[in-house]
């Protein structure tokens, strides 16, 4: 087999609770092995010895982008990293802070909450996942991530191999764990449309799935919604639940089902991708001078 030098790795965090980086730090039994497997150049949560001007083989980035300053840092990380990995729901989908994405104008929403404020430290912006701005090579979702899935991804990436995470919804693993089906018990469970890999963490404790791993490739959200409506949940409840962790992934793929208008502003040239209702609505605002680039050929 080919000899592979230890990959240079950095860990970074933006807007989020830090739970994903903390999950990694919490792997006490494996921490030494991680440090042996890769050459960690930056991990502020673990060590103040950071080298933030170096080229990296792999950058792991937690959190969503919510300020101009973060956006600049993210672009910097991207520029000096061969592989950029989004870790956690915030980095992958925007996090709960992106739950209102596409519901009217962000500035208005911002003012409604904070009033007129002067931005002193950083200029805030609508919460978006990393892939809104830069190319993301791999997403390890979860709130927080699952350490085994992280190890799996880390070893694959360290060997320069693609990472295929589980394609099953939560239901599959939930059955493996022989849990009672919470959906059948009348709970608002998102298991059938949510990517597995968490080992059905919540249902194992009798809690319905909240969708933090994001929608599966084949999520039949329309069927899930009608199923939940039959169980007497209101559209609002269902949509709020889908959006809480689904963020941009939900909005991009299922805008129509979430009641988000997808028409582009009149007279504006069409963006490259139809999934851009959110960006399109935002792009006309002057605050969005750094308008998220519309990417074509997205694979989701």
């Amino acid at each position: 087999m080919a000899e592979i030098p230890k990959p240079k790795v950095g860990f970074y965090g933006f807007t989020g609770c830090g739970g994903d980086l903390l999950t990694i730090l919490h792997c006490e039994d494996e921490l030494l092995d991680i440090f042996n497997a890769v050459d960690i150049r930056s991990f502020l949560m673990a060590s103040s010895d950071v080298h933030d001007d170096e080229e990296l083989d792999i950058a792991f980035v937690e959190g969503s982008i919510t300020t101009d300053h973060q956006l600049e840092s993210l672009k910097g990380i991207r520029k000096r990293s061969k592989v950029l990995v989004a870790i956690g729901s915030c980095a992958c989908f925007g996090g709960p802070q992106a739950a209102r994405l596409g519901y009217g104008d962000w500035e208005e929403r911002f003012k409604k909450v904070y009033g007129e404020v002067k931005h002193t430290v950083a200029r805030p912006r609508e919460s978006y996942p990393l892939d809104e701005y830069v190319k993301v090579d791999c997403c390890i979702p979860g709130c927080p991530i699952d350490k085994h899935q992280f190890f799996f991804a880390l070893t694959r990436l360290a060997k320069g191999m693609p990472v295929e995470l589980t394609t099953f919804p939560v239901c599959a693993e939930c059955k493996w764990n022989e849990n009672e089906c919470l959906l059948l018990k009348g709970e608002l469970c998102l298991g059938p449309v949510t990517a597995g890999g968490c080992n059905s963490r919540c249902p194992n404790h009798g809690l319905p799935c909240i969708g933090c791993w994001g929608p599966t490739k084949e999520a039949n959200v329309a069927s899930e919604i009608s199923l939940l409506k039959e169980r007497n949940f209101s559209s609002e409840e269902i949509i709020n639940k889908l959006r809480l962790f689904g963020g941009a992934a939900m909005v991009r793929r299922f805008a129509d089902l979430l009641g988000i208008k997808t028409e582009e502003p009149a007279g504006k040239p069409r963006q490259k991708k139809a999934r851009k209702p959110v960006a399109a609505g935002k792009a006309k605002k002057k605050t969005a001078s750094k308008s998220p680039k519309a990417k074509s050929g997205r694979k989701r």
Binding site: M1, A2, K159, M161, P162, E164
Partner: peptide, 14 residues
């Protein structure tokens, strides 16, 4: 794919 991608890294005698 993944496997063939890796296999191509294997040299003679491996």
């Amino acid at each position: 794919g993944r496997l063939t991608g890796e296999l191509f890294k294997y040299k003679e005698n491996s």
